[in-house]
Amino acid sequence: NHQSTMSPEEFISRIMEAEPPEIYLMEDLKKPFTEASMMMSLTNLADKELVLMISWAKKIPGFVELSLADQIHLLKCCWLEILMLGLMWRSVDHPGKLIFSPDFKLSREEGQCVEGIMEIFDMLLAATSRFRELKLQREEYVCLKAMILLNSNLSTSSPQTTEELESRNKLLRLLDSVIDALVWAISKLGLSTQQQTLRLGHLAMLLSHIRHVSNKGMDHLSNMKRKNVVLVYNLLLEMLDANTSSSS
């Protein structure tokens, strides 16, 4: 269990190195958007990002030592939250805009062309504003992203086999490591002890907003798919189905 002996500093440097490269949509965007064209661009980008997300997760120290079942379950639970936090990070210095990729930026108003998406854009923009007010640091951002992944599924069923039990224990120790890492990152900012505690609380509370927006987004995407506004395929389809089939 090398991650338990890893210092918070080392843990952060490993997850900083795991960061996926910048991704481009690489499509000729025809403006104004239609409902179908915007949904297609959004889902094409999400599908590309998902492939990189799997590689990213595998680079989180200790993740690949979890059981394969836990790895799959965690990713299926949190993928949209991870995509949304990444979007917030890219958009943090651009008030009122959502920077999906360097070549795909949307203003709040552009959300008007997709039924029901402006509400989600507004929630994304609100959470992004909170991160802007808090002056979220890159080290904190990477910790939060790892926290989302590792905290995404606290299974209700108790582990049945030794393998499941070991994986569950590893997961809990990994969560300890990532919390330690976030606490360490906050401690570098030159705040008073009380301010550090408050910051940790505020950052952690933002995660519940992200979960909420992700649930809204998941419903929206499955509705768009059901109404044939957009054709969802490939890895994105697999990840979406994992959520819609378990909730219905």
């Binding site: 492939v51 799997i54 590689s55 595998k58 394969l68 799959i72 990713l75 490939n234 890895l235 697999e238």
Partner: peptide
């Protein structure tokens, strides 16, 4: 094999 499983089980190049 699902795509997710495939991506998780392939060794990094």
């Amino acid at each position: 094999h699902t795509k997710l499983l495939q991506l998780l089980t392939t060794k990094p190049e």
